[in-house]
Amino acid sequence: MNNIFVYCESEQGVVADVSLELCTKARKLANQLKCKLEAVVIGTRLKGVEKQLFPFGVDVVHIAEGDALEPYTTLPHTAILVKLFQEEKPQIALMGATVIGRDLGPRVSSALHSGLTADCTSLEIGDHEEKKSNTVYKNLLYQIRPAFGGNIIATIINPDCRPQMATVREGVMKKEVFSETHKGEVKNIDVSKYVTPQDLVVKVLERHTEKSKVNIKTSPIIVSGGYGVGSREGFQQLFELASVIGAEVGASRAAVDAGFADHDRQIGQTGVTVRPKLYIACGISGQVQHTAGMQESSMIISINNDPEAPINKIADYVILGDVSDVVAKMIKYYKKNSK
């Protein structure tokens, strides 16, 4: 009772990275709250799935297996989570801010009348004092997220309703093994008791998935372009620099909206969050929506002809100049000196 639950996404029995990242974070929260960490996996081919989860500090794995449960559709997963949460009364429930989590989370929160905060960038435990009623709430989940287009950071709490629910985007939390030898318990869910035929009204007819070709999230060096790059052709030069120095190419929302780069390269609040060791920002002004997704980079180089560009304030190096000129020189002098 009153444990932390993580809804784990899985595909053909493989638990998604975002779910393991959440387990890592949830383990720390559970230690702080001195409660257990429980995971829920719903899908097919789940035999032995607990072995993927125990090393991340999961104490109990609830497994709901059935052919009708994968690919994901809203209602059966909702039915299982709602009933399970009613029985187990978790104090906190977390899921990925993925297409699945953002479809499922609100549905579950509505059914349970519990508060949900989307796309949290940080989760902490803390107290809250309600001055009007003179009530002190101990050990609430602080759900911290950017709002208003990233111009404010809000701390949201759910004083009275449980579970306190939050979604977190992939890559925001770090995935770290808690202990290779950690062992927990498996509880199998009798799906027929949770899911009714009416829950299966939406059918997936066809599905095309592709492994994302771009993996900016794990790249140690990112060459990223903004609206200031000027064109899709301008981005070609960034690709050239990236291939020379062994980097991936990222982009700001403005550059993606303008059609200079594809959406899967977008970095920032509405794209992916990255923390490479080197981030080269080319022609990026640095609106907070963008910097929210890259400000934890170990080193930031900003190439911009505007000395007042906001990104310069978080940069380690600012090269004042024209992007194409500076990038050409970087390519030239990298080649010259790297041999």
Binding site: I153, T155, I156, I314, A315, D316, L320, V326, K329
Partner: peptide, 24 residues
């Protein structure tokens, strides 16, 4: 059910950046 506990405006933290011109 959700309450806003705190709102912080995002203000850029200034740190010392090394400013370079574009010379070779």
């Amino acid at each position: 059910p959700t309450k806003v506990k705190k709102i912080e405006n995002v203000v850029f933290q200034t740190k010392e950046a090394k400013i370079l011109g574009p010379s070779d």
